[in-house]
Each structure stands twice: as structure tokens, then as C-alpha cells.
Design a protein around this nucleic acid. Structure first.
Lengths: 340, 340
DNA sequence: TATGTCACCGAAAACGTTTTCGTGTTGAAA
DNA sequence: TTTCAACACGAAAACGTTTTCGGTGACATA
């Protein structure tokens, strides 16, 4: 087990100074051809690689960014990470992944832990708890220290920073309109509680579509699901007590569960009830029937967020001007078997 | 935008030495009650936090580990990350996630990039290409430098290090035996090409089960899928040309696709054909019919791998002895609707 | 011979910590 | 008054780099 070799060791071995070694390896013109070759040969032999930590300390940048997400097992977030990772890697950055587990405290701890030199910037999507508490001091804190933050998907308007979102409102509107165009009149909505920003926006889009088409908004058809572990009963009641045409669900799980419950209750999807979901994940693709859904391209969001962050990181301090953008990623309606 | 405050700045401001500040903050008994309180108050006011990079350099450890996986959008790998992340976080470690995209080169680049002080150890699952090339020099390299490596799931016996696996052979045997016990005789296998270690082992388990029960192994019933993007035809041929009882698939995608193709061909699952999968992901759970599957607990694997790595990291250099363990995580057969 | 110009190299600072060791001051004991 | 311990603090090294600045010797020019 031989430890990594350092400049100092090479210098000692070759009986030159550390500076000479460093310069030789960086092909400085100050060094004679002779010594340069000697040093480079030696370095190669011992497989010298500069110590990243030392470089980080010296340069005051770590070439590492952090992405904080509520859950990694959600396919959407996994795709976002994938996008972030690729852009970061292409530009010589590493990615630290932190999971908040939808907890405010974990989000705070993670940020504080890393905001001390370990990383150069954050990409994040808020935890449910944070959205509920509306406490963003940990984020304003790091921003005020000059660390760039890019928020995506679950964002807040209370914070000034770069953002990457989809137009949740419009996407929901379009999805609902799609159902209306098919001639459906009694369209139910499976959504989240209001403090989840995207859930709220999608609910608004749904309502807007109904109103635009002079359809009455029936509160009985709007089911707000809080407990994501056990909500089949809610859906069952919805279906039993209303004579539904169609269901619009704000995520994949809600959609696939709706299909399952409907099928169990003897309703055929899409013949009796059409179902449309949100997020084009593996469930929508592989479910039977496969699910018509609003595709929000996570990879693209991740790539965009990463690019925005790196851009901020690469500009010189002096030129820094606080100007924040909000990028909207296009959504797309993927038509599959669950609608007719 | 106020930059982070350093010991030096505090020292200057309070007109004491850097050492005094450092000691005060660490509650050293060398410092008088008076100055200590003064320093601590000032530090709190300015929200002082020690610079992690400087600490890393000093301590020669970064309190960061890296997990390298082939793909993050595979649910199984996401769950492993989740397990790793939690254990790491509990112990004050951060996790850098690297994706090899099944590419040998990316795997090598990632490892070389991080093995220079940035991280304290690796957790990894081999890329397909690496398994195919059987070139592991990048891994032996970092191990020989004294950096601990824990491999999981896709491992190789050519490398000596800690490993976390499931008994793929046994799990496949049990799954096949489960089908045999139900009375099925013509059991097909949907598997990967042989160089994927887990695919090969699962194939062996399947064959072993057949032989143990004196069933003949029909090569026509074994479909090795290379192109994971387009293999429906292969399955269709399998079903059309053979009078199958049951299908054992070595992953979720193969299983759900088999069900889809069978259904399309007019075969009912599970009434005409029973299907059993591998990996208890969201597909198996939400597909209709839901899929009976071998559950390999990714979270547990991740946790175990992280614990093994941290254990190696926490022991003192002197006590270090090269002794490697291979931990086997229990699998479980989750019975659902796709078998009868 | 004195001066200047290169080519080549080394010392040292800097990044932000922690820790060892040394030093000056105080008060009490001899 | 001297001695010694205890106390409180500072200087400096160390982690591994990069870079600025200065210095030395050789050689050419005046």
C-alpha cells in the first residue's frame, strides 16, 4: 500500500525545490528542458496526481456542486440527477447528492454542512415540509454568502434565484382541455394538498380549463391526497359516488392507482373512464393500460439547472451582477392507452 | 454579499491570535473564560463555520464517499443510493454520486478524478462494459493506494475487496422452484447476456432448479437479451413458438414486457402463463397484474455497503489489516398477481 | 573589467485549519 | 527577594498546492 506521492516527495527525491517540480509539471517556460523531462518522467512513474483538496483550498473553489432533492426513488428526481450529472461531468464538476426525505431539518442540515467550502453551488427542489413551513432562511443564508442556488420544480417565489420549472398551470390546463375536447364533462382531479407548489398550480390549471369551457367546478370531484401511502379508499369513494367520465391525476402514482381501483370496481379504462397522469416515468410507460400523461422532461430540467449554475460559477466575481432568470421547460402530452 | 468569516478575520477583529480563536471555539482549557466567551459570541454573531476544505486538507480525510453506479434511473440503484446516503449522513459523511452510463471509460475517469483526496472511499457496481472487458486496473489502483472499495451487486471475483451481494444463483433457483412447485413444466427464462455477472448467476440458478427437478433444459426457452431497447420480438417469438407454462425474467422490465406481449398475443397472465420477475421495484408493484418477484432489498444493500466502508474508514491506519468480507443480503419472494 | 541580460531555479506566501511547543505574566511559597 | 508552578496566550508547523518574486551563475556587450 503506497500512499499517493506529493510534490514534496518528488522534490526531495530529485533534489530540487517544490516550485521546480510544480512548474515542471505545468510545463512552465521557466524550467529547463532537462529538468522538466526528468521531473515529468518521475511523476509519471509514480503516477502523480495533484491533490484535489489542496487545489480546492488554494483556488477557493471545489469544482463540486450539490443537488438536494426530497426523494431519490421518485423516477422524476432520478432523471433530474442524471441530467445534472452529465452537464456537471462534462465541465469537470462533481455532484454531491443530498436527500431531504421531505424533511425541513434535513434540508437545513445538509445545506449548512456543505456551505462551508465543500461545494460551489446548490441545485435544489424543496421538501414538502419546507414548502409548508415557508421557512427559507437556510437558503437566503447561503445566497447572501455569495453561493449560487438554482431551484427546480418545487420552488418558491419568496426567494430570488435562478429557477427551472415547467409551466405546471398550463400543462394541467392543457391536459384537462385535452379531456374536455374528447367530450368528457365530469372530470375528476386527484391532486396533492395545497402547500406542495406544483400540486397547487396543477389544480389551478385544471380549474381554469373547466371554467374556460363553462363547465362547473364540482368540489366533490377534487380529491386532495395527503397521505401518499394509503389513499385507495379516497379514490374508491370518488368513483363510487360520482359518475365520472375521466380522471386527471397530478402524478404517476395517483394515476396508476386510479386505474387499478377503477378496474377493481368494474370500470374499464379507457372505455368507461379515461385517465391522464403527470410525469412520464416508467410506471406510465409499462402500466397496462399504459398511461396518457404530461411529460415533464427531468433530464432536460437537470441539464438546464446545471448549466445555469455553472454559468454563475464561471463568471468572475467582479462581473457578478445579480440577475436571476426563470427557465420554463416545455411539457408535452404523451398519448397512450388510458384515454380514448 | 458577505463572504464567510475565517479564524484569521475573527482574530484580527478581536486582536488576538488565530490559535486563541481556534482554541476558544473548541472550548480548550488553555483559554480563559473571558476570552473564550468573547470569541464565541463574536463567532456566533458572524455565523462562523469552519471551512471544510481546510479541515479535509489538515485531517487528510474528506468525510465524503463516492458511489459509482451504471445508471441512476434504474429503481434498484436509486434505492441503493438511498440506503448509502442515510448511513453516510448519520455518520457525518457526504455522498458523491457518479454515473458510469455502463461505460468503462467513464468509470475510469470518475475514479481517477476522485481518488486524489476528494473522497475517502468508493462504493461501486460495475458497468456492463467493464464486466465485459474484465479490465479492473482502475480499481486495483485505488485499492493499492490504501483507499477502501466496497463493491455491490455487479461485482467481480478478480478483485479483493469488501462486497455486498444477493445470492443471485439461489434466488433464481428458488424462484424457478416456486414455479415448478406450482406444477409448471415449460418454464422460459428471459435473461441478459452472460458477461453481466448477475444475469449469468441467475441463469445458472434457473438451470440448476430445472435439473434438480429432473426437468430438461430446453435452450429454446432461454432467451438472452442484449439490446434492452428492443426485444419485444424476441419475446413474441418465444411465446409463439413454444407452449409455455411460465416465464422467469431476470429483471422487472423483461417481466412486465413479457406480460404485455403475452396479453397482446391473447394469453392471459396468470391464467395461461405465470410470470415471475426479479427486483421489487415500482413496476412490479403497480403493473396490472402486479408482478410476483424476487425482492432484492436495495436499501439494505446500500446500508450494508456504506456500513462496511465506514468501518474501514474509521479504523486507524496502524490497525489496518487486509481482511475482506462478502455479505449476502437475503432475498425474498413477493407473491403477487402474475402467478397462480 | 564592469555592466547587463538571460536562463534557470528556490524561498516564501497564500488558502484555513489544528496542535504542539514555547513564552511571558502572575501569584504564592520558600 | 527569589523560585516555581499555573495560567493565558502566541508563533509556527503542518496538510499540498500554485505563483510571485528574488537570486544566482553564465555569457555577451561596451
Amino acid at each position: 500500500m503506497r500512499r499517493k506521492v506529493t510534490l514534496k516527495q518528488i522534490a526531495k527525491e530529485l533534489d530540487v525545490s517544490i516550485s521546480t517540480v510544480s512548474k515542471s509539471l505545468r510545463d512552465s517556460s521557466e524550467i529547463s528542458e532537462d529538468t522538466r523531462q526528468k521531473v515529468q518522467a518521475f511523476a509519471k512513474l509514480y503516477n502523480y496526481k495533484p491533490n484535489n483538496i489542496a487545489l480546492s483550498l488554494k483556488n477557493r473553489k471545489s469544482k463540486t456542486i450539490c443537488i438536494i432533492i426530497p426523494e431519490i426513488i421518485h423516477h422524476f428526481f432520478a432523471t433530474v440527477i442524471s441530467g445534472v450529472e452529465h452537464v456537471a461531468n462534462e465541465n469537470g464538476y462533481n455532484v454531491i447528492v443530498c436527500l431531504s426525505d421531505e424533511s425541513f431539518d434535513k434540508e437545513v442540515i445538509n445545506m449548512e454542512m456543505l456551505a462551508n467550502g465543500s461545494i460551489d453551488g446548490f441545485i435544489m427542489s424543496l421538501s414538502k415540509e419546507t414548502q409548508q413551513k415557508r421557512d427559507f432562511h437556510h437558503i437566503t443564508e447561503v445566497i447572501s454568502q455569495g453561493m449560487p442556488v438554482v431551484m427546480f420544480d418545487r420552488i418558491t417565489n419568496d426567494i430570488l434565484c435562478d429557477k427551472v420549472i415547467i409551466d405546471d398551470n398550463l400543462a394541467a390546463f392543457n391536459a384537462t382541455q385535452f379531456l374536455i375536447d374528447k367530450g368528457f364533462k365530469k372530470i375528476a382531479l386527484l391532486t396533492t394538498v395545497d402547500y406542495v407548489s406544483v400540486g397547487k398550480l396543477r389544480t389551478e390549471g385544471y380549474i381554469k380549463a373547466l371554467k374556460t369551457n363553462d363547465l362547473k367546478v364540482d368540489e366533490n370531484l377534487i380529491v386532495k391526497i395527503e397521505d401518499t401511502d394509503n389513499f385507495e379508499d379516497q379514490i374508491e369513494n370518488l368513483i363510487l359516488n360520482n359518475d365520472l367520465d375521466a380522471i386527471f391525476a397530478v402524478n404517476e402514482i395517483f394515476a396508476v392507482t386510479a386505474i387499478k381501483v377503477a378496474t377493481r370496481l368494474g370500470k374499464s379504462v379507457p372505455n368507461d373512464v379515461s385517465v391522464i397522469g403527470f410525469t412520464d416515468g416508467i410506471i406510465s410507460k409499462y402500466s397496462s393500460p399504459s398511461i396518457t400523461t404530461v411529460s415533464q422532461n427531468g433530464v432536460k430540467m437537470g441539464e438546464k439547472a446545471a448549466r445555469m449554475l455553472l454559468e454563475k460559477l464561471e463568471i468572475e466575481e467582479e462581473d457578478y451582477e445579480e440577475q436571476y432568470k426563470t427557465e420554463v421547460i416545455e411539457t408535452e402530452l404523451v398519448e397512450r392507452e388510458s384515454t380514448k
